[in-house]
Simulated assay, not measured.
Amino acid sequence: MWEEKLKVYDALVSKCNRFKRKGKTMPYTSANGYMFSLFNKDCEIGIRFSKETQEKYIKEFKSSIYKSYGAVMKGYVLIPDFMLENLDNVAIYLNESYDYVMSLEPK
């Protein structure tokens, strides 16, 4: 299951040409000193947004906050499995997340 879902995450990230997937045991994307997507041990994908956007997307996606290793990930939205059937659409959100972290003060 983990390997199959990791392939989905990798396929999603490969649709975005401004950044690459990082991490071996905990796959993620980062830019400007901030992580902005994460694939956790529970085979869940989370994408980071501003607080306002996070609240909007949790409602819109009928989703929830994203947790990794039991910790609530600030600003992250859990991407529901049904959304992964259209990776082109999810890639739009991933690119939006990249733009968001690039707008922050660099770490």
Score class of each variant (00 low, 15 high):
residue 1 M to I: 08
residue 1 M to Y: 08
residue 2 W to I: 10
residue 2 W to T: 13
residue 5 K to Q: 11
residue 5 K to T: 10
residue 6 L to R: 06
residue 7 K to Q: 11
residue 8 V to P: 15
residue 10 D to S: 08
residue 10 D to Q: 15
residue 11 A to Y: 09
residue 11 A to S: 06
residue 12 L to N: 02
residue 14 S to T: 14
residue 16 C to F: 04
residue 17 N to C: 06
residue 17 N to S: 09
residue 18 R to E: 14
residue 18 R to M: 14
residue 21 R to P: 01
residue 24 K to D: 10
residue 25 T to M: 14
residue 25 T to E: 07
residue 25 T to S: 13
residue 25 T to N: 14
residue 26 M to F: 08
residue 26 M to C: 08
residue 27 P to D: 00
residue 27 P to C: 04
residue 29 T to I: 09
residue 31 A to P: 10
residue 31 A to G: 12
residue 32 N to W: 14
residue 33 G to K: 12
residue 33 G to H: 13
residue 34 Y to G: 01
residue 34 Y to R: 14
residue 36 F to G: 07
residue 37 S to K: 04
residue 37 S to M: 06
residue 38 L to W: 04
residue 38 L to R: 00
residue 38 L to A: 03
residue 39 F to A: 01
residue 39 F to E: 02
residue 39 F to M: 01
residue 39 F to H: 02
residue 40 N to E: 09
residue 40 N to I: 07
residue 40 N to G: 03
residue 43 C to W: 07
residue 43 C to H: 03
residue 43 C to Q: 11
residue 43 C to G: 15
residue 45 I to E: 00
residue 46 G to E: 00
residue 46 G to T: 04
residue 46 G to C: 00
residue 47 I to V: 12
residue 47 I to N: 03
residue 47 I to G: 04
residue 48 R to P: 04
residue 48 R to Q: 05
residue 50 S to H: 05
residue 50 S to I: 09
residue 52 E to P: 00
residue 53 T to L: 12
residue 53 T to D: 11
residue 54 Q to V: 03
residue 55 E to W: 13
residue 56 K to S: 07
residue 57 Y to H: 09
residue 57 Y to R: 10
residue 58 I to W: 14
residue 59 K to E: 15
residue 59 K to M: 14
residue 60 E to D: 13
residue 61 F to L: 14
residue 61 F to K: 05
residue 61 F to N: 01
residue 62 K to C: 09
residue 62 K to S: 09
residue 64 S to R: 12
residue 65 I to R: 15
residue 65 I to E: 15
residue 65 I to D: 08
residue 66 Y to D: 02
residue 67 K to N: 06
residue 67 K to A: 07
residue 68 S to D: 01
residue 68 S to E: 06
residue 70 G to H: 05
residue 71 A to S: 09
residue 72 V to P: 05
residue 73 M to T: 04
residue 73 M to R: 08
residue 73 M to H: 06
residue 74 K to E: 13
residue 74 K to D: 07
residue 75 G to W: 03
residue 76 Y to A: 07
residue 76 Y to S: 02
residue 76 Y to N: 00
residue 77 V to E: 00
residue 80 P to Q: 02
residue 80 P to R: 13
residue 80 P to C: 13
residue 81 D to H: 12
residue 81 D to L: 08
residue 82 F to K: 12
residue 83 M to I: 00
residue 83 M to T: 05
residue 83 M to E: 02
residue 84 L to F: 13
residue 84 L to M: 12
residue 84 L to N: 03
residue 87 L to I: 09
residue 87 L to S: 02
residue 88 D to A: 03
residue 89 N to I: 13
residue 90 V to F: 09
residue 90 V to G: 01
residue 91 A to P: 15
residue 92 I to D: 12
residue 92 I to H: 15
residue 92 I to N: 14
residue 92 I to K: 15
residue 93 Y to C: 06
residue 94 L to E: 02
residue 96 E to H: 02
residue 96 E to G: 10
residue 97 S to Q: 03
residue 97 S to P: 13
residue 99 D to L: 14
residue 99 D to K: 12
residue 100 Y to N: 03
residue 101 V to K: 04
residue 102 M to R: 15
residue 102 M to G: 07
residue 103 S to G: 13
residue 104 L to D: 01
residue 104 L to T: 15
residue 105 E to W: 10
residue 105 E to D: 08
residue 106 P to C: 06
residue 106 P to K: 11
